[in-house]
Computed example of a mutant assay.
Amino acid sequence: MIETSTPTRPTLAARTRHFARRAWKMEEAVWVSLYRFIFRRPRVPAGATAIPYHAPVVTIMIVFIALSAVEIPIIDLIAHPWPWVRYPLLIAGIWGVTWMVGLLFGFLTRPHAVGPEGIRVRSGAEIDIDLPWSVVDRVIRSREVVEKAPKIQDGEHGRTLALRMQNETNLLVVLERPVEVSLPTGAETIDAVRFWADDSDAFMSAVRTHIP
């Protein structure tokens, strides 16, 4: 008889440690993004062309930031008679706005990049996929709109990672061989990457300068 093992579910302690590590990394990334934006140090490899991808979400994020900033003085006025309530809410409000600004700056300071070494596909401060030219089979335009779909799923080109912006992607990188990538949820092996670029023409033009 062949025995099959069932995957073990992570313990509560393991899930708590994972959540704490991810929260810490996100907090760190927010402050690094603020630093990079203020001192104009976008994370673009030397000689690479930067291609932004934030257009579909930037307006929504700015609206949320503005609304959150407006809430701070309103809540401060309401809670003014109770300092023990007022100050924690004030600190939380300022931290929340700062965090959202840093989140936005993560998109602005970490664009996609196409350079001599290969392609870097980004999604804010959390995801940075390094694809050397040696593992890239082809890059094609491939528009896809999918709602409520997992980031990784099996498709025509194998196990595909989709970094959607407002549920959309417009470019596809098909790989020569499976590649292991690091995601916030852990390491994954993929065969292709779908993603969004604000200017797909500029992206393809940059690719053609390095591969036929």
Rank of each mutant, 00 (worst) to 15 (best):
V121D: 03
D128T: 12
F19T: 11
S134T: 14
P7I: 04
W196E: 05
M165Q: 13
E180P: 06
V58Q: 11
N167G: 01
F195G: 03
E147P: 08
G115N: 02
E117F: 03
V174S: 00
A162V: 01
R177G: 04
L103I: 07
R143S: 12
W99F: 15
V32L: 13
E126S: 15
I60D: 10
S182T: 15
L175Q: 01
S33K: 03
D201V: 03
V57A: 08
I119G: 02
I75E: 06
L34N: 08
G96R: 03
L108N: 04
T16M: 14
I51V: 01
A202N: 00
V101M: 06
A162M: 10
V179L: 08
A192Q: 02
R164F: 05
L183Y: 07
I78T: 07
S142V: 08
I190M: 05
E126I: 13
P81Y: 09
E28F: 11
E180C: 07
R194K: 08
M204G: 02
R41K: 12
L34I: 07
I2C: 12
S5H: 14
R159E: 03
W24R: 04
R86T: 08
G155D: 09
R122T: 14
I65M: 09
P83F: 11
L89Y: 05
V174T: 05
H54T: 05
G124D: 04
I2F: 15
I51M: 00
I62P: 04
I91A: 15
V97I: 11
I127S: 04
T4G: 12
I74Q: 07
E28Q: 14
S123L: 15
R9S: 13
A66L: 15
D191F: 03
P52Y: 08
R122E: 07
V30K: 01
S33L: 02
K151F: 15
P111M: 06
A50H: 02
A13I: 14
A149N: 07
D154I: 09
A66P: 02
F105W: 09
D199C: 00
S200G: 03
H210C: 06
V114K: 01
P45L: 12
A149D: 10
F107P: 00
L108H: 07
P83I: 05
N170P: 06
S33D: 10
D154F: 15
R22A: 12
M204E: 06
I65W: 07
L108K: 02
P42M: 02
P73D: 03
L89R: 09
R43I: 09
I2V: 14
W31H: 08
V63Y: 08
R15Q: 11
E188W: 00
W31Y: 14
A202T: 00
G96I: 04
P7S: 09
R122I: 03
V146G: 07
V30F: 11
L77Q: 10
P7N: 09
A14N: 04
P7C: 11
D130N: 09
R40Q: 11
R177M: 06
G47E: 06
L90D: 08
M100K: 07
F39H: 13
R110A: 12
P42E: 03
H157V: 01
G96A: 09
K148E: 15
P178A: 06
E117R: 11
E27I: 13
V207I: 04
A202S: 01
N170G: 04
V70D: 13
A14Y: 00
P116M: 13
V207Q: 02
V145F: 08
R40L: 12
R86N: 13
